[in-house]
């Protein structure tokens, strides 16, 4: 079947098998390998991307379901050569070790901050609770998201002054 969608702001169109999962479409067909795959059961969240601005597990979405929609992946977080504050936060606060869960965690974190610019620790933990990190123990991920929130708050103060 034929699908066309917008991925990180770029239009793409491909012939695909009906059953192709979005995660494999992104990775194998578009070469966007920053989105990972880690389980068979929608438990791990290494595959999280945005579909029309909402985080989804791309292992549980058919590429066909994204037809006509907008997808954003970790490769689309950096804008104009500038890292998103979430990306910076993860680097600053050691929010990653092996880096395998990181793209999914960052996509969820970005979506959280867009809705809630000053989340509490509990809100951050709740937001990433559908995702697994086997390396970090989560505390540094929480701090990374807090760093990004604080950074954005400080930028906002700066620009309104």
């Amino acid at each position: 079947m034929h699908v066309s969608m917008t991925v990180n702001g770029e239009p793409v169109a491909r012939e695909i098998e009906d059953r192709l999962l979005l995660v494999h479409f992104l990775r194998d067909h578009l070469g966007l390998t920053g989105t990972h795959w880690g389980c068979d059961t929608s438990n791990c969240g290494t595959c999280v991307v945005w579909l029309d601005g909402e985080p989804v597990k791309s292992c549980t979405v058919l590429a066909a379901m994204a037809d006509g929609h907008e997808v954003r992946t970790v490769e689309g977080l950096e804008r104009d050569g500038e890292l998103d504050p979430v990306q910076q936060g993860f680097m600053q606060c050691h929010g990653l070790q092996c880096g395998f869960c990181t793209p999914g965690m960052m996509m969820t974190a970005r979506a959280l901050l867009d809705r809630n610019p000053a989340p509490s620790e509990e809100e951050i933990r709740e937001a990433i609770s559908g995702q697994i990190c086997r390396c970090t123990g989560y505390a540094t991920i929480v701090r990374s998201v807090q760093w990004a929130a604080a950074y954005e708050a400080s930028q906002a103060v700066g620009s309104s002054a």
């Binding site: 966007l32 920053g34 910076q88 680097m91 600053q92 990653l96 880096g99 395998f100 960052m106 701090r143």
Partner: peptide
């Protein structure tokens, strides 16, 4: 949250050299 400026010539807190690729989704697994 962190001490950003510490760039030790040797031991001490230092941001990881591998992270710039990982946070961009450019790890190579």
């Amino acid at each position: 949250f962190v001490d950003n400026d510490q760039k030790p010539v040797g031991y001490g807190r230092m941001l990881r050299k591998e992270d710039p690729r990982f946070v961009r989704g450019l790890g190579h697994y």
